[in-house]
Structure formats: structure tokens, C-alpha cells
Nucleic acid binder design. Structure first.
Lengths: 105, 105
DNA sequence: TTGACGTGATACCATTTGGTATCATATCAA
DNA sequence: TTGATATGATACCAAATGGTATCACGTCAA
């Protein structure tokens, strides 16, 4: 089973989550992303590396620029993981349902 | 708007994610949770505090024991946040659809 | 060719994080 | 009461993390 630790880790930082929202619909260079934050380009670049490690973005080189693109399909493992708790939730619901049915008998 | 940083942060650690899975269906004391990991009770207790800060578990005191209970509804903000990217994904799909329709004319 | 520009890479720093060890406190049971 | 048990709380430590500053390198434009 593949480790999704890099994915969860990438989502743990608010700056990185903002970058992801920012990349919806538009690819951006490192400098463009950095313009939206009050920190150095180097710091933003580090965040982009973490996002890339988590598979959440892909990078395309074009001349001397590097365009960062959102990869929405990378969220799938998170949805899968959340599903483990849906099952539990359903169990509790069916328990409740049984209890109610037994009660109305 | 409420910050969901404590929630995302709580999910960033693999031990904590394991604890959550472990708590599906059964409430457990701190000692019981700690028995399942190769670390001290104090370390596990710290993780439980972070999970509690994220709203992912609730704690019920019973005598000298403290039972930790999973709170599945705490995942809702994460699903909501993921939804922001569903919209983007749908846009890309409809773009693709339009392109195909235009092409088959 | 020559700068200016966009980026990569490295060293460095302060803070946070995950962990241990240790002691104090409250509760259960004999 | 007395001792074992379950937990709380604190101090401490190493490593990871988020940030800066700085320099090197490839690329574009004049």
C-alpha cells in the first residue's frame, strides 16, 4: 500500500492550501505565486516542492519559466481515506435504525 | 470563517491517522490506545490532545479513566474544502465536453 | 555580447514538533 | 489507610519545518 504521508503533509500548511486554491483554473510561475504572499520567492518555492512531492501539482518548464499546474486527481487518496469513516458512520446509523425499529415494535 | 488549521494539522501525522482508524467503533482509554504503539503513553497522550484540538475526538471521563471517542462529523470541513476543487474539475470536464461537441459539428 | 530576469541550490536560523523521563494527583481495591 | 493504577503536567532533547540571505546558472531581449 502506497504511503500517502507526503499528500497529507502537503495539505497541513495554510500557505500551501492557499496556493492550491490559487492554482484552480490558472497555471502560474513561481514568481507569480510568490507575488501573492508576503514571503520570499525561495520560501514559496519550497512550498511548491512539498506540493509537488505530494503529487498535488505538476511542473512544466517553458523557457526560463516554470509553470505550476494543479492536479485535482491527487485528492483521490484523501477521499478514499475519508471513506473509511463513512463506513463507520453508516454502522452507527444502522444501529440507530435498528434501535428505532425495535422501539416502535 | 472558522480556521480549520487544527483539523488539517491533526491529520498530518501518521500515528494520529492510525489512532482515528483505531477508534472506529470502539472508544478507548489513553492506556489502551498507547498499547498499540511503540511509544510512551505521554507521547500518545500528546497526539490525542492534537486530535482533540482538531475536533476529531471527544473525551469522556469515567472514574480515573478517560475514554476517547471518534467524532466522524469533524471530517465535514475537509470534504467541504475538497469540494472547491470538484468545481474546478467539473469546469474542466465541461470544457472538454464543449470542445468535443464543437468538434463533432 | 551583455545585462536583466526567472529559477535552482545551499547555508543558515528560529520555532515547532514528536518524543522521553520524571514527578504530582486522583481514583480504585483490598 | 495503603498501595497499585490511570492520568496530568512539566522539563528537556533531537529532528523537522518554515523562513531568510546569497550565489550560481540558464534564458531572453536589446
Amino acid at each position: 500500500m502506497t504511503s500517502n504521508q507526503p499528500l497529507f503533509r502537503a495539505l497541513a500548511d495554510p500557505t500551501r492550501r492557499d496556493i492550491l486554491l490559487m492554482l484552480r483554473g490558472t497555471d502560474m510561475t513561481i514568481a507569480q505565486v510568490a507575488d501573492n504572499f508576503d514571503m520570499t520567492r525561495a520560501a514559496v518555492k519550497k512550498h511548491l516542492t512539498v506540493l509537488s512531492d505530494g503529487g498535488l501539482i505538476t511542473v512544466r518548464t517553458q523557457g526560463r519559466e516554470r509553470y505550476n499546474t494543479l492536479n485535482p486527481s491527487a485528492f483521490a487518496p484523501i477521499r478514499d481515506w475519508l471513506g473509511f469513516f463513512d463506513a463507520f458512520w453508516d454502522d452507527r446509523l444502522s444501529d440507530l435504525k435498528s434501535a428505532i425499529e425495535k422501539d416502535t415494535k
